[in-house]
Nucleic acid binder design. Structure first.
Lengths: 181, 181
DNA sequence: CGCAACATGTAAGCGGTTACATGATTAC
DNA sequence: GTAATCATGTAACCGCTTACATGTTGCG
């Protein structure tokens, strides 16, 4: 499943512009599927060329025309076929884990920094998920709720693991641990 | 960090051929960093061209020469620099989660199949990690132990989450749940 | 005054995947 | 006999990233 298919799927939840879809990728999808404008706009153009989406242009002064896309019946059918893969992939690519595999080549300070930075990013994800819960998570389609819960579960497991096992790769600094308690 | 750098890091744990490194990618690294021959062999050739590895060719009858690579001092230095990035990436790309986001476009049977297949792959990972524990995990460098433990923690969290929340995306089949108890 | 948000797009380049090509040895 | 293992590599392709290009509106 490529960016094109994901865009098509996003359009099942309502008409949108490329700009809107980008925001979507940055929010709910950010923890498992990245895409930038350089992927999204060409994807929409291709979908349009294949008749899988329609486009309504809305003139605006000073800005490019707003192009609102809507999925067509052909698009819906195409999406259903794409979703029929019973073994969709789930791939991690982690420089973080690769780096730690080679921790024996690094100083303790470096390893510490890498772990702390990861914990910070995890905290950002947690904050993001909390935002979603405050907003209308309860009214979301069940698939989206499942996926966000999945993200929370994984992120939480990662956080706990790092906190409880960092002594494997770096000597524990007890001062740091009790500093701001 | 690209395949080249990871190959270089792997060579810090002992000399190896491209074939050996592929097995490495398929074992310890399989859960977070994929690479095929089409990446590995060109990577080694490039490293050799840059003087970051040496190569000893060993003649064999009927087979191509075995090319055993060894990291050089320049390679070690290069690796240390690559490892100095304090914010290494950690990216998930999941068609699995994308698919479930659009569960409202699928039949219950399809969603069930997707979840079951994921649980099966999770089981394969669990078996793999268990293998490592039986083998000499205790003698592994700490970085590798940390990374494998991380994999186990994440995989376990994913398994538990799917088992406890699949009712969000598909009606629970109670027969199935109690079938082989 | 400057920055963020709105809004669309192109083009070069890079890195990785997939398929192809070859072929002996060993274990079942 | 046939499949897996050992062993190396190339080349086309594909999709994504990054940088570039443009310009208004509104907020602080």
């Amino acid at each position: 499943m490529d960016v094109k298919t994901v865009c098509l799927g996003m359009l099942t939840e309502g008409d949108a512009t490329g700009y809107d879809l980008k925001k979507y990728f940055e929010s709910t999808f950010s923890h498992f599927f990245a895409a930038g404008y350089g992927s999204i706009y060409p994807a929409l153009a291709a979908l349009f060329g294949e008749g899988l989406v329609e486009c309504t242009e809305i003139s605006q002064r000073g800005k490019p025309n707003r192009k609102v896309y809507r999925i067509t019946d052909a698009g819906t059918e195409h999406l259903r076929e794409a979703l029929s893969d019973p073994k969709p992939s789930h791939k991690l690519r982690s420089e973080f884990l690769a780096t730690l595999c080679f921790a024996h080549m690094m100083s303790d300070e470096q390893v510490d920094a890498v772990l702390d930075n990861r914990l910070e990013e995890i905290a950002r994800y947690e904050a993001m998920f909390d935002e979603y819960e405050k907003a209308g998570l309860c009214q979301w389609p069940p698939g989206k709720r499942f996926v966000c819960g999945f993200g929370q579960a994984i992120v939480n497991a990662a956080k706990t693991y790092i906190q409880e096992n960092r002594d494997l790769v770096v000597p524990v600094d007890h001062d740091q641990k009790t500093a701001h308690g």
